[in-house]
Lab assay of single mutants.
Amino acid sequence: MSIQHFRVALIPFFAAFCLPVFAHPETLVKVKDAEDQLGARVGYIELDLNSGKILESFRPEERFPMMSTFKVLLCGAVLSRVDAGQEQLGRRIHYSQNDLVEYSPVTEKHLTDGMTVRELCSAAITMSDNTAANLLLTTIGGPKELTAFLHNMGDHVTRLDRWEPELNEAIPNDERDTTMPAAMATTLRKLLTGELLTLASRQQLIDWMEADKVAGPLLRSALPAGWFIADKSGAGERGSRGIIAALGPDGKPSRIVVIYTTGSQATMDERNRQIAEIGASLIKHW
């Protein structure tokens, strides 16, 4: 067993022997301040990774656009098919120029040779490549099948209805392509620590998230040296922004954090800054 596999296998073990965790309302004060600064709703939840206990939450059962955070769930569904012998990570998928959609920095470079399922998941999570996500959605049967996968996990809230990039439209009061912070946090925890996926697939999923290259201005910008984070960000229309993450000190994750916002007129930089400040408060009061 590799060191990384050992780390993920012992996530519940280490967490069980940690000192009790206590909620700190100071972080919620910052979440509410972010709402004021952005002029928009902000949803927040913080779960203990081992027990699933909610440590703090704000608007945990209000719907927010998922945006690209759905790509972690998508690759979880792909990995479940791999575990069941219905898919192979090494299978190569070929596609054409007509398949390319807006923001496809990886797939646009491989029109000639195609990409493997493993490479597509890596591109979808680490670079948020939209064509990679659409190609992977095709392998599982489309958005409705991802929703069905989530329902089978016990998540009857999260739903995907459309493809990239239309799913980022974020129309107010439109339930399409949305989740709730509580539902997303619980589902992410199941994917990373539950028995739904094999140990190898859980490790692969967290490795992809740990290698995320496009979430630097968010929670990662607030992390002290030595902290662990595996995350996936999302951005959408109407001032929408979000991030889902597993993080913790001492090089291992111990909490799940989900943050979503929508309806702001603020710039992307300002949305990023507010999420980073929430992260800084979380870490300060850990």
Rank of each mutant, 00 (worst) to 15 (best):
residue 1 M to G: 00
residue 1 M to I: 07
residue 2 S to C: 10
residue 2 S to H: 15
residue 5 H to E: 09
residue 5 H to Y: 12
residue 5 H to L: 10
residue 6 F to P: 07
residue 6 F to N: 09
residue 8 V to C: 13
residue 10 L to N: 06
residue 10 L to E: 04
residue 10 L to D: 03
residue 12 P to N: 11
residue 12 P to R: 05
residue 13 F to I: 10
residue 13 F to G: 07
residue 15 A to K: 04
residue 17 F to P: 05
residue 19 L to S: 15
residue 19 L to D: 10
residue 20 P to H: 10
residue 20 P to T: 06
residue 21 V to Q: 05
residue 23 A to T: 04
residue 24 H to K: 15
residue 24 H to S: 12
residue 25 P to H: 13
residue 25 P to V: 12
residue 25 P to D: 10
residue 27 T to H: 06
residue 27 T to V: 14
residue 27 T to G: 04
residue 28 L to E: 06
residue 29 V to Y: 04
residue 30 K to C: 15
residue 31 V to W: 02
residue 32 K to S: 12
residue 32 K to H: 12
residue 35 E to S: 05
residue 35 E to W: 01
residue 35 E to P: 01
residue 35 E to A: 07
residue 35 E to F: 02
residue 35 E to Q: 08
residue 35 E to Y: 02
residue 36 D to R: 15
residue 37 Q to T: 12
residue 38 L to E: 06
residue 39 G to K: 15
residue 40 A to R: 03
residue 40 A to L: 05
residue 40 A to W: 06
residue 40 A to H: 04
residue 40 A to Y: 03
residue 41 R to E: 07
residue 41 R to P: 10
residue 42 V to N: 04
residue 43 G to V: 00
residue 43 G to A: 08
residue 44 Y to G: 02
residue 45 I to W: 01
residue 45 I to Y: 10
residue 46 E to D: 07
residue 46 E to H: 08
residue 49 L to N: 04
residue 49 L to Y: 12
residue 49 L to V: 13
residue 50 N to K: 12
residue 52 G to V: 04
residue 53 K to P: 03
residue 56 E to K: 11
residue 57 S to I: 07
residue 58 F to L: 09
residue 58 F to D: 02
residue 59 R to S: 05
residue 59 R to H: 08
residue 60 P to V: 12
residue 60 P to D: 15
residue 60 P to T: 12
residue 60 P to C: 12
residue 60 P to L: 10
residue 61 E to N: 13
residue 61 E to A: 13
residue 63 R to V: 07
residue 64 F to I: 02
residue 66 M to C: 07
residue 68 S to M: 00
residue 68 S to H: 00
residue 69 T to H: 07
residue 70 F to V: 12
residue 72 V to S: 06
residue 73 L to Q: 05
residue 73 L to W: 03
residue 73 L to N: 05
residue 75 C to M: 06
residue 76 G to I: 05
residue 77 A to N: 13
residue 77 A to K: 11
residue 78 V to M: 09
residue 79 L to D: 01
residue 81 R to W: 06
residue 82 V to R: 07
residue 83 D to Y: 02
residue 85 G to Q: 10
residue 85 G to C: 08
residue 87 E to W: 05
residue 87 E to C: 07
residue 87 E to P: 02
residue 89 L to M: 11
residue 89 L to I: 07
residue 89 L to P: 07
residue 90 G to D: 14
residue 91 R to K: 10
residue 91 R to F: 05
residue 91 R to E: 06
residue 92 R to I: 14
residue 92 R to W: 09
residue 93 I to Q: 05
residue 93 I to L: 12
residue 93 I to W: 03
residue 94 H to C: 09
residue 95 Y to S: 02
residue 95 Y to R: 01
residue 97 Q to R: 15
residue 98 N to V: 11
residue 99 D to Q: 13
residue 100 L to K: 04
residue 102 E to T: 13
residue 103 Y to N: 06
residue 103 Y to I: 04
residue 103 Y to F: 09
residue 104 S to P: 02
residue 106 V to N: 06
residue 106 V to H: 08
residue 107 T to F: 02
residue 107 T to L: 08
residue 108 E to S: 12
residue 108 E to F: 08
residue 108 E to V: 13
residue 110 H to A: 09
residue 110 H to P: 03
residue 111 L to Q: 09
residue 111 L to C: 11
residue 112 T to D: 15
residue 112 T to G: 15
residue 114 G to W: 04
residue 115 M to E: 03
residue 116 T to F: 04
residue 118 R to G: 15
residue 120 L to K: 00
residue 120 L to I: 06
residue 121 C to N: 02
residue 121 C to Q: 02
residue 126 T to D: 07
residue 128 S to Y: 00
residue 129 D to A: 00
residue 129 D to F: 00
residue 129 D to V: 00
residue 131 T to W: 02
residue 131 T to S: 12
residue 134 N to A: 04
residue 136 L to Y: 00
residue 138 T to E: 15
residue 138 T to C: 13
residue 139 T to A: 15
residue 140 I to H: 04
residue 140 I to T: 06
residue 141 G to F: 04
residue 141 G to H: 07
residue 143 P to S: 06
residue 143 P to M: 04
residue 143 P to Y: 03
residue 145 E to Y: 10
residue 146 L to E: 01
residue 146 L to P: 00
residue 146 L to V: 11
residue 146 L to F: 12
residue 146 L to C: 05
residue 147 T to N: 11
residue 147 T to E: 09
residue 147 T to Y: 04
residue 150 L to M: 11
residue 150 L to W: 06
residue 150 L to G: 05
residue 153 M to W: 15
residue 154 G to D: 09
residue 155 D to E: 05
residue 156 H to P: 10
residue 158 T to E: 00
residue 158 T to A: 05
residue 159 R to I: 06
residue 161 D to F: 03
residue 163 W to K: 11
residue 164 E to M: 00
residue 165 P to W: 05
residue 165 P to T: 11
residue 166 E to D: 14
residue 167 L to Q: 04
residue 167 L to D: 03
residue 169 E to D: 13
residue 171 I to N: 15
residue 173 N to Y: 12
residue 173 N to L: 14
residue 173 N to P: 07
residue 173 N to W: 15
residue 174 D to S: 07
residue 176 R to H: 10
residue 177 D to W: 01
residue 177 D to L: 01
residue 178 T to L: 02
residue 180 M to T: 14
residue 180 M to A: 14
residue 181 P to T: 05
residue 183 A to I: 09
residue 183 A to V: 13
residue 185 A to R: 00
residue 186 T to D: 14
residue 186 T to W: 15
residue 186 T to G: 14
residue 187 T to D: 11
residue 192 L to T: 07
residue 192 L to N: 02
residue 192 L to G: 03
residue 193 T to K: 15
residue 193 T to A: 15
residue 193 T to I: 14
residue 194 G to D: 13
residue 195 E to W: 06
residue 195 E to T: 12
residue 196 L to T: 15
residue 196 L to M: 13
residue 197 L to N: 05
residue 197 L to H: 05
residue 197 L to R: 05
residue 198 T to E: 11
residue 198 T to F: 07
residue 199 L to I: 15
residue 200 A to K: 13
residue 201 S to W: 03
residue 201 S to H: 13
residue 203 Q to W: 07
residue 203 Q to A: 12
residue 203 Q to L: 10
residue 205 L to R: 00
residue 205 L to E: 02
residue 206 I to H: 07
residue 206 I to L: 13
residue 207 D to K: 12
residue 207 D to E: 14
residue 208 W to M: 08
residue 210 E to Y: 10
residue 212 D to I: 02
residue 212 D to L: 02
residue 212 D to H: 04
residue 213 K to N: 11
residue 214 V to L: 07
residue 214 V to Q: 07
residue 215 A to S: 09
residue 216 G to S: 09
residue 217 P to Y: 07
residue 219 L to A: 03
residue 220 R to A: 04
residue 220 R to W: 02
residue 221 S to G: 10
residue 221 S to I: 10
residue 221 S to E: 10
residue 221 S to N: 11
residue 222 A to R: 15
residue 222 A to H: 10
residue 222 A to L: 07
residue 223 L to G: 03
residue 223 L to K: 07
residue 223 L to E: 02
residue 224 P to G: 07
residue 224 P to V: 03
residue 225 A to Q: 15
residue 225 A to V: 13
residue 225 A to D: 14
residue 225 A to M: 15
residue 226 G to E: 10
residue 227 W to Q: 00
residue 227 W to C: 02
residue 227 W to H: 02
residue 228 F to M: 10
residue 228 F to S: 07
residue 228 F to G: 05
residue 229 I to W: 02
residue 230 A to H: 01
residue 230 A to K: 00
residue 230 A to M: 07
residue 231 D to F: 03
residue 232 K to D: 00
residue 233 S to D: 00
residue 233 S to I: 00
residue 234 G to N: 01
residue 235 A to G: 11
residue 236 G to A: 10
residue 237 E to S: 15
residue 237 E to W: 10
residue 238 R to Q: 12
residue 238 R to D: 07
residue 238 R to W: 10
residue 238 R to K: 13
residue 239 G to F: 02
residue 240 S to R: 02
residue 241 R to F: 02
residue 241 R to L: 03
residue 241 R to A: 04
residue 243 I to R: 00
residue 245 A to I: 02
residue 245 A to M: 04
residue 246 A to I: 13
residue 246 A to P: 00
residue 248 G to W: 02
residue 250 D to M: 12
residue 251 G to Q: 13
residue 252 K to F: 10
residue 252 K to T: 12
residue 253 P to Y: 10
residue 253 P to E: 06
residue 253 P to H: 10
residue 254 S to C: 14
residue 254 S to L: 11
residue 255 R to E: 03
residue 257 V to G: 01
residue 257 V to F: 04
residue 257 V to N: 01
residue 258 V to G: 04
residue 258 V to D: 01
residue 259 I to V: 14
residue 259 I to K: 00
residue 260 Y to L: 10
residue 261 T to M: 15
residue 261 T to G: 03
residue 262 T to C: 10
residue 262 T to R: 08
residue 263 G to M: 06
residue 263 G to E: 06
residue 264 S to K: 05
residue 264 S to F: 04
residue 266 A to Y: 08
residue 267 T to D: 14
residue 268 M to L: 10
residue 269 D to M: 11
residue 269 D to Q: 12
residue 270 E to K: 13
residue 270 E to W: 07
residue 272 N to P: 01
residue 272 N to Q: 05
residue 274 Q to K: 12
residue 274 Q to R: 11
residue 274 Q to P: 05
residue 275 I to W: 02
residue 276 A to Y: 10
residue 278 I to E: 00
residue 278 I to P: 00
residue 281 S to Q: 14
residue 281 S to N: 12
residue 282 L to A: 08
residue 282 L to T: 09
residue 284 K to A: 13
residue 284 K to S: 14
residue 284 K to E: 15
residue 285 H to K: 09
residue 286 W to E: 02
